[in-house]
Design a protein around this nucleic acid. Structure first.
Length: 434
RNA sequence: GUGAUUGUAGCUCAGUUGGUUAGAGCGCCAGGUUGUGGCCCUGGAGGUCGGGGGUUCGAGUCCCCUCAUUCACCCCA
């Protein structure tokens, strides 16, 4: 084995897997386009304080999971983006997009970085597909965003997902609830573990989604956020649920669902996959009306968004057998060469075919005909084109259909005429570039 | 950061209470068929047994250290 290996928590994606990625990406581009979302690409790194400000400095992501460095010894610290929302919002504000038009629908498929211990469904470099609706966060907008996310899953054939819904209320609701929760938990603080006790001070809501059974039993009787919601927040949430009902989107209400990033408010949601291990959240999101102002905007900008873990999606699809039928398409023609002396003929035949748009492969290392045929098979070529002495003399070549084993003798021009008419393009994802 | 798990051929894995030359299947290469693939048959290549140290006449096997992997906590998509 080589002395060098990929950095912990990173992995290589080889051609066979790329086919699956392209397929999934193609479906995403297509579905999201149906909803009028447009792609945005932002830099992989941003100034560190952008993330501190937006995600929240008490979160683990900011506290201990960021890859940060200083390009200049005494310059500003920058960080490999651990999520996309902050960067998208920054770009949006920087370009003054909100004065160009009131609502912007943006999406991305992007690489993210978090310094966590790798585990099933968790890497240090991973990729998320996500969307941000900026300028609207009405119940309709929230429902549309959730609908779009679920539509991507159904278009991919993914089944068995569970959508969990909750509302976090507005800022004041949460302040009041936080105090009530703290008051309830404080007498039980002996039962809490170290990290939870710390959170009791800084961010008690986060204790709610602890997996520790002891803590869960304490939480069971804790005050519920629902009882602290102001009437309009409640009404808005009910509206969202109503729209989901109308769209026949199934969900369960989970009063303990809290998001890990501080900028969320009101509706929060999460989708869990039955095929994943402990890291079973395949997607999640919510409203974040306060983020724009947090990042220096003079006015509030209503916003909703979500993110889906691409690797987790891939694992889920793999386990559900949804990727089995996706095979890379082979070349149209594999040129089989009788002996090396005819190399130039084979090469020029190959040039002609390729220039006519026919995907053509040939042996580049002087292998036997048998080996060349095996290679043609391995690559799932449709045809073998034989270049031998008699062909070169007569200018008529054997073209063998490798599925049916039928063989015809044709001039190169005839070969092109036959194959170019039925050229197939399988590996271009639909909805790609058009 | 914490706890556990597993490291033997390109891949998936056997390898007995420590014993002589470390195996299988798949894959790869070649031949059987010197101008035609898939199936079949035959042969071949490929291993510092993760690395280092120790115990022993003898270590893939036992002990220690180390590196890596995987899973879980945590966190999150």
């Amino acid at each position: 084995m080589s002395e060098y290996r990929a950095v912990k928590g990173t992995k290589d994606i080889f051609p066979d897997e790329i086919t699956s990625w392209k397929y999934i990406e193609g479906v995403i581009h297509r579905v999201v386009g149906l909803y009028g979302f447009q792609e945005i690409r932002t830099p992989v790194f941003e100034y560190t304080d952008l993330f501190q400000r937006s995600i929240g400095s008490t979160t683990d992501i900011v506290g201990k999971e960021m890859f940060s460095f200083r390009p200049e010894p005494d310059g500003r610290s920058v960080t490999l983006r651990p999520e996309m929302t902050a960067g998208v919002m920054r770009a949006f504000l920087q370009a003054n997009l909100f004065s160009a038009s009131p609502v912007h629908k943006l999406y991305y498929i992007a690489e993210l970085f978090r310094k966590e211990r790798p585990q099933a469904g968790r890497q240090r470099q991973f990729s998320q597909f996500g969307a941000e609706m900026l300028g609207a966060s009405s119940p309709e907008a929230v429902a549309e965003v959730i609908d779009m996310m679920m539509q991507v899953f159904t278009s991919l054939g993914v089944s068995g997902l569970r959508l969990r819904m909750n509302t976090l209320g507005d800022f004041d609701d949460r302040v009041r609830y936080r105090e009530a929760l703290r008051a309830y938990l404080e007498p039980h603080s002996g039962l809490l573990d170290g990290p939870s006790r710390e959170r009791l001070e800084k961010n008690p809501l986060r204790i709610l989604d602890s997996k520790n059974p002891d803590i869960q039993s304490v939480i069971a009787d804790a005050p519920k956020l629902h009882d602290f919601l102001n009437p309009s927040a409640k009404e808005e949430f009910d509206q969202v649920l109503l729209y989901l009902d109308q769209k026949s989107i199934e969900y369960v209400i989970d009063p303990f669902l809290v998001r890990g990033l501080d900028y969320y408010c009101h509706t929060a949601f999460e989708v869990v996959s039955p095929e994943l291990g402990a890291q079973d959240a395949i997607g999640g999101g919510g409203r974040y009306d306060g983020l724009a102002r947090e990042l220096g905007s003079k006015s509030d900008i209503p916003a909703v968004g979500f993110a889906v873990g691409m690797e987790r999606l891939l694992i889920t699809m793999e386990k559900q057998g949804l990727l089995r039928h996706i095979v890379p398409s082979g070349p149209r023609v594999y040129i089989v060469l009788q002996d090396e002396g005819l190399k130039t003929h084979a090469l020029s035949a190959g040039d002609l075919l390729r220039r006519s748009g026919i995907r053509t492969e040939m042996d580049l290392c002087g292998r036997s005909m048998k080996a060349q045929m095996r290679e043609a098979n391995r690559q799932h070529a449709d045809y073998a084109l034989f270049v031998g002495k008699s062909e070169v003399e007569s200018q008529v070549y054997g073209l063998k259909n490798l599925r049916t084993s039928e063989q015809d003798f044709l001039s190169i021009r005839e070969v092109i005429a036959r194959l170019a008419s039925s050229t197939k393009h399988v590996d271009v994802p639909d909805g790609g570039l058009d």
